[in-house]
């Protein structure tokens, strides 16, 4: 199955005819698109367009009404995400996710947050923990490795000094980057980021952009990005999918999407051809159930 990533025509993620209904409300309506590895694919659209719903389907929170979510894992082959349980999507399919509102383990230290994300490898190595207590070498080694990986990411996000802080006490921007780092510690092949730049100041936002492009270039995984901040979207994404009222209305490179009349109409209404920067309505929750899970 290793040739999945050598054929450029085999996408990392292939969403086919995804439909998600909540009673009479159609949150995602026949959405199809592809996302490649080593690429940042941005999902944009006005509020209520179905972006978070899409993420929730991808990460096992919702079982889609219909459709197929195929993930081609470079070593484990094809996974059908719509049929997997949440923790197996993270563990076996290699899909990691961050949330609109930060969900760190606030009462654990920064370092522990990153080690918890490597839980499965540690549990396997430790014989479900009880053997690990007796100091078996395999467990100690696995633990050392886990700490090393955590240290690597701490270094990347510049939090090495604060490794022993409680995560809840970090400044907002640091928490955002820690969340990305934690997701990366699960060693995913697809990283789904739900508005990672929300609430960041321009400098923090630029830091985040650098982190995301670093992940794309150095760790060669695919990134899915929901974002309202157009400077982020236009600055770093390789591919943009535009949703509106649950439907896909455009799909292409940033340049193509920016000039797409359907997109401009969706964001600004008719008879308006200005640039769409910062033209978003006030933010409310993007999914019909309220909140993101």
């Amino acid at each position: 199955m290793t040739d999945a990533c050598t054929h450029p025509q085999t996408p990392l993620l292939h969403v086919e005819h995804l439909t998600m209904r909540f009673g009479g409300l159609v949150a995602a309506d026949d959405v199809s698109f592809k996302a490649q590895d080593r690429k940042i694919t941005a999902i944009i659209g006005p509020n209520g367009a179905g972006k978070t719903t899409l993420f929730n389907c991808l990460t096992g929170f919702y079982a889609p009404t219909s459709g197929r979510l195929e993930l081609n894992h470079p070593t484990r082959g094809e996974c059908l995400l719509e049929r997997m349980e949440g923790h197996r999507i993270a563990r076996d399919a290699g899909v990691a996710r961050t949330f609109q509102n930060i969900r760190l383990f606030a009462r654990m230290t920064v370092l522990e947050n990153l080690i918890v994300a490597q839980h499965n490898r540690l549990m396997r190595a430790s014989g479900f923990s009880f053997l690990g207590l007796l100091g078996f070498k395999r467990y100690v080694d696995a633990e050392t490795q886990a700490v090393e990986l955590a240290r690597y990411w701490l270094d990347r996000i510049g939090l090495t000094e604060r490794a022993d802080w409680e995560a809840g006490n970090l400044p907002y921007g640091d928490q955002r980057r820690l969340e990305v780092a934690r997701a990366m510690c699960t060693e995913p092949v697809l990283l789904c980021l739900d508005e990672p730049a929300a609430g960041l100041n321009p400098r923090e936002s630029a830091d985040l952009n650098r982190l995301l492009t670093f992940i794309r270039d150095e760790h060669s995984i695919g990134l899915l990005l929901i974002e309202h901040d157009m400077s982020v979207v236009m600055g770093i994404s390789d591919h943009i999918v535009v949703l509106d009222y649950g439907r896909k209305i455009a799909d292409g490179t940033p340049r193509a999407v920016r000039n797409d009349p359907a997109v401009i109409r969706a964001y600004l209404g008719d008879e308006n051809d200005e640039e769409n920067d910062n033209a978003m309505p006030p933010k409310v929750t993007a999914d019909p159930k309220g909140g993101d899970v």
Partner: peptide
């Protein structure tokens, strides 16, 4: 100190996020 204990503390704080980190 153990992975199991960390998983328990993680589940205690946020079960959804724990599942997303691959914890059963």
């Amino acid at each position: 100190k153990t992975a199991l204990g960390r998983a328990q503390r993680a589940c205690e704080q946020d079960r959804t996020m724990a599942a997303l980190s691959g914890i059963n």
